[in-house]
């Protein structure tokens, strides 16, 4: 094996500098290459979520996105879905900080009158098998479902707390948080309509 380069101060600094330079250049190069696809993947992900929660549309909700400020100082993004220029639904990317494992995000699709068309849980760290059930639970039958209900008319609070929606069995905290997020979305939507 060839002899190793001596550990003089000059050598050490020089080598580290060169290695860092080469490394940064290589990484920078890949960065340029992947910047586009990464941004595209992000937009796609949002578009998929929007498609899932509102009726069929032919505009670009991402381009028509508008923001509304919430009462607690946050900002929500609202994506209008239009067909032939007429509003068919609005997807709202909302959050709650009251989750069992902290903050989580859901996309709620409202019909023009403010009733719920559908929803999709985006990111969460709720307990798998318990809080994570919210991914499907609130689409279920009867009192646990939020589909077609309107927070202006129905109380979007868990029945345990005197409301009209049944919480997930054994996952009350996640359920409360979920409804908190939906309520926040609805408030922002109604505020944005004015």
């Amino acid at each position: 094996m060839a002899k190793k380069l001596e550990s003089t101060f000059r050598n050490m600094v020089l080598v580290l500098f060169v290695v860092t330079l080469v490394a940064s250049t290589a990484v920078g190069f890949i960065n340029e290459f992947t910047k586009g696809p990464i941004a595209e993947a992000k937009q796609n992900k949002k578009l998929q979520a929007i498609k899932y929660v509102v009726p069929t549309f032919d505009n670009n909700p991402n381009a028509d996105m508008y923001k509304v400020e919430t009462a607690d100082g946050g900002t929500l993004e609202l994506y209008p879905a239009k067909k032939d220029g007429v509003l068919v639904g609005t997807a709202v990317k909302t959050y709650t900080k009251k989750g069992f494992s902290g903050i989580f995000w859901i996309m709620v699709g409202f019909n023009p009158d403010g009733s719920i068309n559908n929803y999709s849980v985006l990111e969460h760290k709720e307990t798998p098998g318990l809080g994570s059930k919210m991914e499907e639970w609130f689409r279920g039958e009867g009192k646990q479902s939020i589909i077609k209900k309107n927070p202006s008319a129905t109380k979007f609070i868990v029945s345990k707390d005197g409301g009209d929606i049944d919480a997930i069995t054994a996952a009350t905290i996640s359920s409360r948080a979920f409804l908190d997020a939906v309520q926040r979305a609805h408030n922002a939507y109604m505020k944005g309509l004015k």
Binding site: T20, A23, S24, V27, G28, N31
Partner: peptide, 8 residues
């Protein structure tokens, strides 16, 4: 805007 250098 060199966030990608974070790990290094």
């Amino acid at each position: 805007d060199i966030g990608f250098m974070q790990t290094i």
